[in-house]
Amino acid sequence: YPYCPYPPSLLHIEELCDSIVRSHRDTSQFRLEELQALRWKLFSREEIHAYQSKSVDEMWQHCAVRLTEAVQYVVEFAKRIPGFRGLGQNDQITLLKTGSMEVVLVRMSRCFNTENSTVFFDGKFGSTELFKSLGCGDLMVAVFDFAHSMCALRLTEQQMALFCSLVLINPDRPCLEDRGRVHRMRRDLEVCLSHMLHRDNQESLQHKLYQKVSVLQSLCSLHVEKLHWFSQRYPLTVHSVFPPLYKELFT
């Protein structure tokens, strides 16, 4: 991978685009058609009440499990990005520690129904009220707002795939050992995105997508801040029942 000439040939760009799109499709937790079909399957009042009646630590644990599942699909996605497995293990871990949650948030917009502000969770659609017992309403509102703004861009699955790869392959992450190599991967992915947006006649999206990156970073800091708040109150829950992968990534 590192010996690719720059600028990459059109053939290389197209092969890279195809590969990223395939990786995204093969590692999506839910297919778009599946989500579309379930779009109006909403939680009943009783079911919402049951979620709201959970204790703070029960609901945190429940969400940590769901989030960890989503992250595992992102890890698979990362592994299939051309060049990712050629990076040193330390750099692969660094990119996932800082980027997997961001990709989960981008992917979440596929599971979002803007018509009624609900998200697909546990097999049905629910609004922010479902997550009330987490005790972090501001984070949930911010996450839902972000999903709204992502949906407003109306990305195709191909554009979404490329954007997710750009979010993950970020040479600005601290502690990278071979920043040059990550930078070269990123540069080729940027060429791919420009090529795709040009082909789709949607070049104006590029700037809007780059603006999303800072929002993603602030959402992730808010998540870590909330986790810190929670773990000070319920250290045993985090220690003994949270998924080990969640702890490795976020604590």
């Binding site: 890890v75 698979e76 692969q92 871990i93 080990p244 992968l245 490795e248």
Partner: peptide, 14 residues
């Protein structure tokens, strides 16, 4: 440290 991540990264993709 990062035991699970190491394992996930080492598993070959199916």
């Amino acid at each position: 440290k990062h035991k699970i991540l190491h394992r996930l990264l080492q598993n070959s993709t199916s």
